[in-house]
């Protein structure tokens, strides 16, 4: 076991037993095992209980607005490719408020890792339905039951996200392994994390998930390079819920297409007005 203490931040303010603690541990373990120094990491989080995660770690932190961590993460990654950039959202932040950014970031294949703390409920605002709440889930804002939930895995595959995984906050070993794969992956890596909310979601509990999740890597039959198989797998929800790498595809990374990045990070390039003088000839 690597030393995780260098990754310990300020004292968490989450409810005791929150699924976020498992995610925090898994992220710290992934950093430690990949031997990534805190100063190399930039965590960009949104709003919700998930948004606090970076403060409880040791990393550079930009705690963004609700739903906006992905665009800021992209901007930072383009500015300095040497950073390991991780965007952090919840299901409301990522799949609701920031859904458009998420879809297009996958399509363009930016080289960032995206952790979505998916607890199927709004925790910070005290228990309203989220875009991923199960069908019929009753909350104060959905007294007649929640409508059909988003299927983030299927959406990600249809957008050709180059790495799509699901894991479970109650299984830190598995989750840290997925996060390590996601960080090591070149391109956009989505890790949808099933996260029990012990205060507001009394349906999708630790035991509910434990009875249902199974690991795709067990059995050795599943091939995440097969897009149609991945689509089929994305439809499984209910009695059995697959976790692991569901889809991956090698394809061009957005940042590789930018000519300006070929000479190293933009942050190290010179600011020089003089070359602009020759552009003025175009206007003569």
């Amino acid at each position: 076991m690597e030393d995780k203490s260098i990754y310990t931040g300020i004292q968490p303010a989450w409810c005791p037993g929150c699924g976020n603690f498992g995610i925090l541990q898994a992220v710290q373990r992934a950093f430690a095992e990949l031997k990534i120094k805190p100063s190399r990491v930039l965590m960009v989080s949104g709003i919700g209980q998930s948004g606090k995660l970076p403060h409880y770690l040791k990393a550079n932190v930009f705690n963004e607005l609700h739903g906006r961590p992905i665009p800021a993460a992209i901007g930072a990654k383009i500015a300095n490719r040497e950073l390991v950039v991780i965007a952090v959202s919840g299901d409301g932040d990522g799949y609701g408020e920031g859904g458009n950014h998420w879809i297009h970031a996958m399509r363009r294949n930016h080289d960032i890792t995206y952790l979505v703390h998916n607890n199927q409920i709004y925790g910070l605002t005290k228990g309203q339905a989220s875009p991923s709440s199960d069908l019929g889930f009753v909350t104060k804002t959905t007294p007649d039951g929640a409508p059909l939930p988003i299927n983030p895995i299927a959406v990600a595959i249809s957008c050709e996200a180059s790495f799509v995984a699901r894991s479970f906050a109650g299984d830190v070993d598995h989750l840290s392994a997925m996060i390590k794969l996601g960080i090591s992956h070149k391109g956009f890596a989505l890790i949808d994390i099933l996260q029990p909310c012990v205060t507001f979601n009394h349906k999708n509990t630790y035991s509910w998930y434990r009875e249902r999740v199974y690991k795709l890597e067990d059995g050795g039959q599943y091939n995440p390079d097969d897009k149609m198989a991945a689509f089929s797998k994305s439809q499984e929800w209910g009695d059995r819920i697959p976790i692991g790498v569901i889809y991956r595809k090698v394809r061009p990374v957005y940042e590789d297409l930018l000519p300006a990045l070929k000479n190293g990070p933009l942050t190290r390039q010179k600011l020089d007005p003089l070359p602009v003088d020759r552009f003025l000839n175009e206007f003569a």
């Binding site: 960009v44 906006r68 992905i70 800021a72 500015a79 458009n100």
Partner: peptide, 21 residues
Amino acid sequence: AEDEISAINMTIGAAFAGVRS
């Protein structure tokens, strides 16, 4: 960007990381 919300947040992210944006 996909929309102006993304545009300004990307601009902010790049500026935070250290470039004029």
